[in-house]
Structures are given as C-alpha cells and as structure tokens.
Design a binder for these strands. Structure first.
Lengths: 233, 233
DNA sequence: GAAATGACATGACATTTATCAGTTGATATT
DNA sequence: AATATCAACTGATAAATGTCATGTCATTTC
C-alpha cells in the first residue's frame, strides 16, 4: 500500500530520479518504519544498512565531543535523505542519528542504492548535488562556529528553525527542541544558551512559553546574525 | 611536454580514473600554470573555469567573516583537486582560493570534466568519494570549532600541518604560514594565536624561530588536542 | 497525592578569549 | 643610511563564555 512510486516525499529528494523499475526492486521500502522520539537510527562507527528517506519527524545528526557535550551537526526532516555520505564513500558513518520527534522513515537498502548509483546517471548526479550542497553548508557552519559569537549563532539557529520547520498556528516554532538540544546546535553550554535566549526575550526579539518559542522580530534577528546589532546609521 | 598522461600528481587524484582519450582532450591541461604567492585563483561568488589540479605549492580556501577576519576552511596542496564542488553542483564557489606559496597548477576545463563525469563511471565515483571525504572533514571541523578551546584547535592545526606537509631537514614544519594565517586556521584572533603559540613553547611542546616552527612533543600535542592535558592518572 | 525526575532558570564566579595600544625586529624602499 | 612597512610580539583590560551551585516548575511514576 505504501509504495514508493506514490510517495509524495520522494519528489523532494534525489530519489525522484529513480525509474519505476528501480523503485519496484526496493522491496524493503514498501512499508515505512515508525521511529520513536529518542530512538537511535545509527551510531558513529557503524556501517549503515542503507539510505533512509524521511517521511515525517525530525532527526538530529550529532557528534559527541571530548568534553562530553553533544554537538548537533545537522537536522534532517521530511524530504531529506540520511546516510548517503557513508553509502557513497563506503566508510563508516561519522555521526550519530537520533530521532528528535517521532518519525516515519523508509529504508532503501544499500545494494539497491549502489546499483542505482552505478546505472542511473541522473540519480547519481542528483545525489552528488545533494552531497555538494551539504559540503557547502558544512563549510559555512565551520566558519560561523569559528567566527561568530554565541548570540549570533543563536540568532542563526532560530532563523534556521523558523525557515526550515515553520511555525504552528499560534506562530510558535514547529520544531520542538530542548534547551540542551538548542545549545548543541549553537555550540555552547546549556546555561549560556538559556541566558542568551532570555536575553533576546528581554530585548523583544522573541517570546518563550515553556518549551515553545515565538519569534517576534525576524529582521532584528537577521541583523544580529550579521553582527549589525546596535549599529546606528 | 607537460602531458597529463605522464603527470605523477594525477595518480593521487580522481583524475587517475580518466582514460587516455579523455586526458588527450583536455588541451588546456598540457601546460601547467605558475601562480605567485598571494595570487587569487578564484573568489567567492564566481563561477570557476574548471577544476584545478595542484602540482606543487599550497593554496588556502578562505571565507571572510562579518567581523573582517579571514577563516581558512581548508588547505590544498600537491595531489589535490580544487573547485570540484562548484563544478559538480553547478553553483558559484563559496570559498576564495589564494596561493599561500608559489604554485604550479593545471586547469582542467569545466566542459571536459563534466563530460567525463557523465561518461566515465569510475571517475565520477572517485570524485564523489573525494567530496564525501571533504564533507566528513568539514563536519569534524565544525564540531571542533564549536567544542574545542583555542589551545586544542592550535594543537590540531600544528599536528595537521606536520602530518600533511611534513618537515624540512632540520625538523621545522614545511608549511610556512604567517601567524595571521595560522590564526585563520585555528579560528581566533592573531594576538591570541601568538600568545598560545609562545605558551606552548614555554611548556616545551615546540620551538619557534621566526616564522619557522619545530614540533618537539608530538604525543603531548595529541593529548592537548584530545583535552587530556594535565590529567594525572 | 507524594515522591522522584528532568527540564528550565538564575546567581556567583572563574576562565577563556578578544580588543586596544603599543614595542620590537626584520625587510623592503627611497 | 634613513624611512616606511609589515609581521611578530607584549601588556593591560574588557568582554564573552563556561562552570558550579542551587532553586523552581512541570511531568512522570509509584
């Protein structure tokens, strides 16, 4: 019933370049898998079973640093693929994937993916483009971590969550992350993150109600991100 | 005279997967180009003319941050390719490439690369692996920037320079970077970098003679990098 | 409903890092 | 040789961020 051919999510990914034939072969893909919040999809050092296609929910790709903090390298969500890098290069995964919310995913077996990569030029080209895009983002991320302040990076993160996951009907960010997870994205201590967040609240950029966050002044946050805060003409 | 087929450097790169025929076509490649220290190969926002193959010298890939500091994202050297990401994805380059030393490079025209990517499965697979490798490194780099101290990152950088470029006959690091460039790699202010460096010198990890750096205690630097400094059993 | 738990929050303080203002030394320029 | 220039370096200080201790609140568990 849950056939790949009919899956809307596929349209957003490189999988759209697969032929009907190829899709038929991906037998495992016919049913999607339900993942509970907190569940681990794969861990650093493993060889993944294949590429995951995300139908719903949010997953964090993390890396544990020597000081014990969990750095979130990327969030993946509806319409994203997961695990391509490792399948493409044949290496172990270098990041751990953990569900941030309940998820619905499909596993596309490694062998099928590799066969399609070898035989379907358009597919491999699309996958390559996605990896290149990831690389660009990763480089930007490195520069931001190295050069921006925590406040700037928090503004970035909030804007990213806003643009990527949108808001609920009341305007609150749809992505529900704990403060600890936010700190993991920003790359700072949880206490520092909380302080910055309430700082931004006091300055009127946002409101927080428990775990929910409402962005009020988007252009202002963009200025903070660019380091143009408090710059009068 | 300087034909690709005979080029030793090619062996180290994905270009090794190109056929004799393909190499013959890359007319521009027949002669290598000499680049002077400080010269710009391409700048952020441009569309590159092709992929560069580096025969000798060192080039920095940098990004200017809002606060005016130049962050070095990657160094490329003999046997590396330059500009693949942009050619593969068809996007503008997102980094600026500047020669750190005099260089010898070959330009492989965009059209030829794209043709080979489409027609030569092994070549495209090799290129893909290199991009995947870059992505892995970039992710690690992001985590390091976010979670490690300046001292740890400096240790990382020194070890990287040691392992990648080696030393001259006297044991000094072969890669000659200015303090400002080192700071750009570590992601800190030049003054901070200088202080850290002389700190490491006082602690006996290294010696500096002007621009030259001699690493004395490699295992010690590795401990610093892992954050195990001053941890007595 | 009481107890336990975990996320959120804040204060006090320590540490790290950046910034600003210079000095020195080497190298290039006239 | 005098001058300009730039990289390397240092000191004083400010600002940013981390750490530790503690408290509150909401939620889960029994």
């Amino acid at each position: 019933m849950n056939r790949c051919e009919q899956c809307i999510v596929r349209q957003f990914t490189a999988l759209n370049a697969l032929t009907k034939d190829e899709l038929m072969r991906m037998a495992v893909c016919r049913t999607s898998e339900n993942i509970k919040k907190g569940q681990i999809l794969f861990e650093e050092g493993e060889h993944p079973k294949g590429v995951y296609c995300i139908k719903s929910g949010i997953c964090k790709l993390t890396k544990l640093s020597a000081n014990g903090r969990e750095q979130i390298v990327k969030l993946v969500t509806r319409g994203d693929l997961l695990g391509q890098r490792s399948i493409l290069s044949g290496e172990k995964v270098n990041l751990t994937a953990i569900a941030v919310s309940d998820m619905e995913i499909c596993l596309l077996p490694k062998e099928d993916i590799l066969r399609s990569l070898a035989n379907n030029r358009e597919f491999s080209s699309e996958v390559m483009k996605e990896v290149c895009h990831d690389l660009k983002n990763a480089n930007n991320s490195t520069v931001n971590m190295a050069q921006k302040t925590v406040k700037q990076r928090l503004a970035d993160t909030l804007l990213y969550l806003y643009k990527t996951f949108g808001t609920d009907k009341h305007g609150f960010l749809s992505a529900q992350l704990t403060r600890e997870e936010l700190a993991g994205m920003v790359g700072t201590a949880t206490e520092s993150l909380i302080r910055m967040l309430s700082g931004l609240m006091k300055e009127g950029y946002l409101k927080t109600g428990g775990k929910k966050i409402l962005l009020i002044n988007i252009p202002g946050l963009e200025k903070i991100s660019d380091g143009q805060e408090n710059v009068s003409s």
